[in-house]
């Protein structure tokens, strides 16, 4: 590491930390990077919620084989560090697929990012959905069985409508975490906010204001998102309807 330029506290450097003018002058390229974060987040969230739901159904199925597959899936993706999986999906998966499909397969970085983050977080979503489904009182299901409703009908008309409302807060929290995770996609050359910040730093040689601004920006966005989710959760809880 290059030795620090000061031996103790340096007010001049501190002033630079709060100097947002550098960030502002590059705002177009930097904020377009932020847009990429949101884009990756959007698609990854769809993938994560969608496959999470499917896996959740596997986990609550009557077939032991299905439950086993579902559990293995969840354990695998919850125990895998995101960065590890990201590099694996981007560098290894195309090569494996190339050998299997005998045609040249290449992943664009953005695709790898969406795939990796989506699959990683599908494990969390699957758990969240499963908790929601299992929280529906047994009696409601028995009442459905007593009026001769089949399993699919019970799931569709009784369990899911209630479960969706119960899992929404936790699912939103999962989504906020997913957005936080999109910050690592720069490491496989996806042109997101951090990617552009690092480039600008190399060009301007001014790490202090730029990295600090990036940190503050991320903080502001994530703080607002968490606060929003919190407010919504409170509102839904007080509007208890059973």
């Amino acid at each position: 590491m290059p030795p620090p330029t000061t031996a103790g506290f340096d007010f001049e450097s501190l002033r630079q930390v709060f100097d947002f003018s550098y960030f502002w002058s590059y705002r177009e390229v930097l904020l377009s990077g932020l847009l990429v974060n949101f884009l990756v987040f959007g698609f990854a969230a769809l993938l994560a919620a969608g496959s999470g739901f499917v896996v959740c159904l596997l986990r609550v199925s009557r077939s032991r084989a299905a439950r086993g597959i579902g559990t293995f899936y969840v354990e695998l993706f919850r125990n895998t560090p995101e960065y590890v999986f990201l590099t694996w999906v981007h560098f290894v998966l195309p090569l494996v697929l190339t050998r299997l499909l005998v045609t040249r397969v290449n992943f664009a970085p953005t695709l790898s990012a969406v795939l990796a983050l989506g699959l990683c977080y599908s494990g969390y979503f699957a758990e969240t959905f499963r908790t929601g489904i299992l929280s529906i009182p047994r009696g409601h299901i028995d009442a459905g069985r007593a009026v001769a409703m089949g399993r699919a009908l019970i799931m569709r008309r009784i369990i899911l409508p209630q479960a969706i409302r119960r899992v929404l807060p936790e699912a939103l929290n999962n989504s906020v975490s997913l957005f936080k995770a999109t910050s690592i996609v720069s490491l496989i050359a996806v042109p997101d906010l951090m990617y552009n910040v690092v480039n600008v730093v190399q060009y301007e040689m001014r790490p202090l204001p730029l990295y600090s601004s990036a940190a503050f920006l991320f903080f502001a966005i994530l703080f607002m998102l968490s606060a929003l989710v919190q407010a919504l959760t409170e509102r839904w809880r007080t509007r208890a309807w059973g």
């Binding site: 910050s183 690592i184 990036a214 940190a215 991320f218 994530l222």
Partner: peptide
């Protein structure tokens, strides 16, 4: 509310 990657760069370079 700050991603770990962003914090790493911040702590390491600022």
């Amino acid at each position: 509310n700050t991603p770990i990657f962003v914090q790493l760069m911040w702590v390491a370079y600022v």
